[in-house]
Amino acid sequence: MAETAPISADFAPWEAPDAKPIIQFKNVTKRFGDFTAIDDLTIDIFPQEFFSLLGPSGCGKTTMMRMLAGFESPTEGTILLDGQDIAPVPPNKRAVNMMFQSYALFPHLSVSDNIAFGLKRDGLSKDKIADRVEEMLKLVQLSQFASRKPHQISGGQRQRVALARSLAKAPKLLLLDEPLGALDKKLRQETQFELMDIQEKTGTTFVIVTHDQEEAMTVSSRVAVMDHGKIIQVATPQQIYEEPNSVYVADFIGDVNIIRGTAKRADGDHVHITFAADHAPLIAATKRDIAEGSEVALAIRPEKIAISTEKPEDRNNAIQGKVLDIAYLGNISTYHVELPGGAVVKAQTANTRRVHRRSFTWDDSVWLSWTDTAGAVLVE
């Protein structure tokens, strides 16, 4: 298999009007009896993307993957792979491979024979199989373990064997169903970067199903956040985090404070948000067209909120409260601050010094402040 050109830093085919998708869901609905798992879904996925389907259990992400693999068929609508309707194509004839969370390795076969299994079933010559297996072993850095059985290697290495086997037949599309779920946290984080490196080297389009927000944000070119069979937002990880299109997405991805209130248009791209009778309105920048008097939510990430003992003079948004709780997480500390009305807002500070005395402790009176652009204004 020839190596593809590296994916460039400005890789964004979804923004190019003439880019051709490799996968197209067109008004796809999937029902199981009275239950609608996928509801009139339309989406394009492009070649060389590392695309994540993210959402809670039962949101439809695994059903989408199973339809791509050929294990389920749409009730309505069409799924195209490279412009071809794949409904009549059986799973073993599709240019699609799937890697399962369990890895599904054959325990009685060596690492090499596990990788070669699909190639042998396709009737390739011994020389071609040997060359391809060697290429895959080098790709996943397991050449020295070629003769070992799966039980003789670590969990992370078994994961790489499963990946090599999935890529051996050079599929156009690789589906990964919670591929790192069996690994411990540290190994999982290391393997995420290995997956990204392998995907870039092969140029294969990866579609991954995960419920792990951090994993999706790390590996993906784009993330589709799903709920009840619908895609709520599809965007780059940065856009999903910084510019969520709904309270659901803001709340699902990472940690967030949601302050609800009533919006009043201000000068330029700003709105004033009245959230408490005894407090000055909050000021927030937004490009959204917010109608006067709309009920809105201001979503602010804890790391974007500053905490201080004195009221800052250089910020429009400042609220006084009392430290209710403190979570020390090593690299950061999260302060839970109770506001006069009883609402609790979280603010984070980086622990940049090895040994330090906290500037604030339980029951201290503190000021929380943030810039006009720190939060996202969302219409309820």
Rank of each mutant, 00 (worst) to 15 (best):
residue 331 N to G: 14
residue 331 N to R: 09
residue 331 N to M: 09
residue 331 N to A: 10
residue 332 I to G: 05
residue 332 I to C: 02
residue 332 I to T: 12
residue 332 I to R: 07
residue 333 S to H: 02
residue 333 S to F: 04
residue 333 S to G: 07
residue 335 Y to H: 09
residue 336 H to I: 11
residue 336 H to Y: 15
residue 337 V to E: 08
residue 338 E to V: 11
residue 338 E to W: 08
residue 339 L to M: 08
residue 339 L to P: 00
residue 339 L to E: 05
residue 340 P to I: 04
residue 340 P to A: 06
residue 340 P to M: 06
residue 340 P to W: 02
residue 340 P to H: 05
residue 342 G to S: 00
residue 342 G to N: 00
residue 343 A to L: 01
residue 343 A to T: 03
residue 344 V to A: 10
residue 344 V to W: 14
residue 344 V to M: 13
residue 345 V to R: 12
residue 345 V to Y: 11
residue 345 V to P: 11
residue 347 A to N: 00
residue 347 A to E: 00
residue 347 A to G: 03
residue 348 Q to A: 11
residue 348 Q to W: 02
residue 348 Q to C: 05
residue 349 T to A: 07
residue 349 T to Y: 02
residue 349 T to D: 04
residue 350 A to L: 00
residue 351 N to L: 07
residue 351 N to Q: 13
residue 351 N to W: 05
residue 351 N to A: 10
residue 351 N to G: 08
residue 352 T to R: 05
residue 352 T to C: 03
residue 352 T to V: 05
residue 353 R to V: 15
residue 354 R to A: 10
residue 356 H to C: 03
residue 356 H to A: 10
residue 356 H to S: 09
residue 356 H to W: 04
residue 357 R to Q: 05
residue 357 R to Y: 02
residue 358 R to C: 03
residue 358 R to T: 02
residue 358 R to M: 04
residue 359 S to I: 04
residue 359 S to C: 05
residue 360 F to Q: 08
residue 360 F to W: 08
residue 360 F to S: 10
residue 360 F to M: 13
residue 361 T to C: 02
residue 361 T to W: 03
residue 361 T to G: 01
residue 361 T to Q: 01
residue 362 W to I: 11
residue 362 W to N: 11
residue 362 W to D: 08
residue 362 W to A: 12
residue 363 D to R: 14
residue 363 D to W: 12
residue 363 D to A: 15
residue 363 D to V: 13
residue 364 D to K: 10
residue 364 D to P: 08
residue 364 D to I: 10
residue 365 S to I: 12
residue 365 S to W: 06
residue 365 S to C: 07
residue 365 S to R: 12
residue 365 S to E: 14
residue 365 S to K: 14
residue 365 S to Y: 10
residue 365 S to D: 11
